[in-house]
Amino acid sequence: MSQAESQEKIRVEGLDFHYGASQALFGVSLGVRTNHITACIGPSGCGKSTFLRTLNRMNDTVPGTRASGSIQLDNHEIRDLDVTTLRRRVGMVFQKSNPFPKSIFDNVAYGPRINGGGSRADIADQVERSLRRAALWDEVKHKLHQSALGLSGGQQQRLCIARALAVEPEVLLLDEPCSALDPIATAKIEELLLDIADSCTIVIVTHNMQQAARVSDYTGFFLMGRLVEFDRTEKIFQNPAHRETEDYITGRFG
């Protein structure tokens, strides 16, 4: 493993998270490595999505929530960063695809535009590049100016990925991006994640263990708000250190 590979993009230490009176995360600590894919798995309600949403402070928008502990992006506390800058650097794709009710082009161009991104031609370039990275270009290039709501579910989700990529984030968070998709659409998205990971750090939450095994380099197993185990994916799936992890992997519960 080279030096660059082992660098940590995000370092989380002792992260606690509360929704009002109930605590959702208990002392989570882990490192997300640069340009690798990190998967978070665990039964529903285990806190993996909550964890993901603290990484770009998306939980700030939910009233009554509280996070404590340390999250560092490139050695800077994320709460010290301007939240909009943070979210530009740490993009997110949601469980349910959520294209804006605008044209396909305008969806992808949204990020570059609000970030004041250059000339018309630059933006058009950026849109094409992002759609190609999201493996959607060939399917939509002849209808860029039609409504994004006319696309299929899988296409919409890839559009959302393209839209997130268009601001050139350093990290991309994906919250169960394939849970509403059929196997073929899922395969397409997994394939493109592997491509994107060349130049982007990825954290993916999934309830699908096979998916985690297929795409990720590192895997964290969450259970009832705690990070039970975090290690290289092969290790987690072949030789887990904890009993709970093994039980979950082998389908004994969850």
Binding site: T61, P63, S68, S70, E77, R79, T84
Partner: peptide
């Protein structure tokens, strides 16, 4: 390790007023 206070937007302590004004 530092312990953060609330991260809800009203209390985000480190974003300066000037900066938020510029942000609109």
């Amino acid at each position: 390790m530092r312990v953060a206070g609330s991260t809800s937007p009203e209390h985000a302590p480190t974003t300066s007023l000037r900066r938020r004004l510029l942000g609109g």
